[in-house]
Design a protein around this nucleic acid. Structure first.
Lengths: 351, 351
DNA sequence: GTTAGCACTCATCAGTGGAGAGTGCTAACA
DNA sequence: TGTTAGCACTCTCCACTGATGAGTGCTAAC
């Protein structure tokens, strides 16, 4: 980045002050405010000159002559990358989060739903969670059981206690014996494999092993594939969307509606969080850095959680570009650890 | 109802006109509008007199002197019960709904999610669906299978292809044989029973039948109970909440936020739809007929869908009191039939 | 019983002017 | 050369005003 040096220390300090104040007040901030509030030992006129420079460089803008300055996306970007101080969660905040999370769920999907609601109420911003991509997880077991004369149940169990199942309907007259033999044969061929690399065994082998008719076998294999597909597909959770209406940037009804509508579209949410999974740990997307039109006034802070490198999902917090980045970033990192701990717990319980 | 007769025919006609116009325009309607629009052969002055009467009786109110009249909750109630004409779905509307619904889902929860989204986009109002109460359904099968040395999987299958499962962790060294015997014994005792009446079999009998240790057996029975509990619990779906912002009654930001917040609370939604299940078929709750504070400006139209009397759920449409009752009512009844048909299909496929 | 006419009420809207916040520029100062 | 006090200027915000128009209630005539 060549422009990291285009700001001297004083400009940086002033920019930081402007953004800090604006995040708090949501109103254009003037030179006098800065001069008084943060005693930099400078008069307002000097600050005005610096502000004029900052504006020319694109870090801040002026809604109209004789209004104060408002940070631009570029300004926020610089703030987030270089100026923002780490926010230290207050002791009782941390406690509150930890208590809300610990042992709160017995299954992954419960956990994510809960996380979503906790985070959105803690930060005051809409929060999204996408459940882990399990393609790198191991298949623990595949079972086929008869539930009555015409229906079989195919069950797939994956690490972490994730279970997927599907019913197969058939008209064959088959011995329970054969099904058990088939189930065992299938299980030895598939279990222990990674989801991403598993391939369906050869139908012929299975016919030999079980004496089941080929048509039924291929039906069952289809069912297994469907189970795998479902395990691989991720769920999307969103909570607290209405929180956005608390912020003055959305007092315009039309804008508010547009944004809420966008947020209620599942695939938008999914892509939002998904693109975060490219980045190693933390990503902050500011305003126009989001491609989607109506999101140009929103920022998204995302991070990836996960279990030992595999099975990773993402969590994201959405707010106006004027969001409390430092607090949100610390919160999301703290939460991420809590999630990881809970996932570990669930995995160790369910094997 | 004694007050059914306090209105003569002319008053009824006028009241109906007022409400029809107001539902369309969202603006207080004046006597001249009525006199001109619907040629009742009456002058505006006459209508003014009638309106004064209607106001005194509480069917309409005046926001301020010299404004037109606005229907009161009592007015809407009378309208819904006695005045409103049945709305006939247009041919292409019906087609559109049917096409969107037919064969659109392979499982019940997919179906409900879809219904929610279809209805809310069709009517333009937020829509809720609660999944059926399955307590009167039959248990088709219970199976216990080993997934590795230390984990068992308990699977419960209920009519309609609904499956619930739970993993049991143990440290016993047990033969696969024994588990199969146990599973069969358990299955013969439980399958075929109604969920609401099923009771756990005696542990001793099962020990005799299977040679499994008692502690493990009671762990498994707990897991079965948990599966049953989960099958019995209902899911709540909501879609299109942001639609409310389209209506001028919610152009007040504070009000809008309040309402959206209420709607995002799952138990509120649940109770809303739940109370509908008392009523046989269709219920319309108008404004203050809802107990919850911020819902006093909303109406809810609900109906019950279901499969042969048992396993019934509910669907509800939420709008401002000024909602297009006739269209909403016909739509919801039409949808209800479509849902029932789809449920039948799923039940017959999955047994 | 119906209605034309009239006086009256009230919301809405455009226009006006003063107050306040904030800027840019200039000239003086260290 | 960098800093700052001072000043003219710009623009928003708000309260106030008066005109307009929609709609009412009442009265008197049909």
């Amino acid at each position: 980045m060549t422009w990291e040096n285009e700001l001297n220390d004083r400009k940086k300090t002033i920019l930081k002050s402007i953004i800090d104040v604006y995040i708090q007040s949501a109103q254009p901030v003037g030179s006098r405010t800065i001069a008084r509030k943060h005693d930099l030992g400078l008069g307002s006129a000097t600050i005005r000159n610096e502000m004029a420079d900052l504006e020319e460089l694109g870090y801040i803008t002026q809604p109209h002559t004789s209004a104060g300055r408002v940070p631009s996306d570029k300004g926020y970007r610089f703030y987030v990358d270089h100026l923002m101080q780490a926010y230290q969660l207050a002791y009782d905040e941390a406690i509150r989060l930890r208590q809300a999370m610990e042992n709160s769920a017995e299954e992954l999907n419960q956990l994510f739903k809960r996380v979503c609601s906790i985070v959105s109420s803690f930060t005051g911003y809409p929060t999204i969670v996408i459940s882990p991509q399990l393609s790198e997880s191991l298949i623990k077991s595949v079972q086929v059981v008869a539930i009555d004369e015409t229906h079989l149940l195919v069950v797939l169990v994956v690490e972490g206690g994730i279970v997927s199942n599907r019913i197969v309907r058939h008209n064959e007259n088959v011995e329970e014996e054969n099904i058990i033999r088939f189930s065992n044969a299938l299980n030895t061929k598939i279990s222990g494999k990674r989801i991403s690399t598993v391939s369906m065994p050869d139908t012929l082998d299975l016919i030999l092993a079980s004496d089941l008719p080929g048509t039924l076998i291929s039906q069952i294999l289809d069912a297994v594939k469907e189970c795998i597909r479902r395990v691989e597909s991720t769920d999307v959770y969103l909570d607290g969307a209405a929180n956005l209406l608390n912020y003055p940037e959305f007092s315009d009804l039309i804008k508010a509606r547009e944004v809420l509508e966008i947020l209620s579209e599942e695939d938008v949410i999914y892509n939002l969080a998904r693109s975060a999974m490219q980045k190693p740990s933390l990503e902050v997307r500011i305003g126009s850095e989001n491609e989607i039109g109506p999101m140009k006034e929103l920022s998204v802070v995302t991070t990836v959680y996960g279990h030992e490198g595999r099975s990773t999902g993402a969590i994201g917090i959405i707010g106006p570009t004027r969001m409390t980045y430092s607090r949100v970033v610390s919160s999301i990192l703290y939460i991420k650890d809590l999630i990881n701990r809970e996932i570990m717990r669930l995995f160790s319980e369910h094997g």
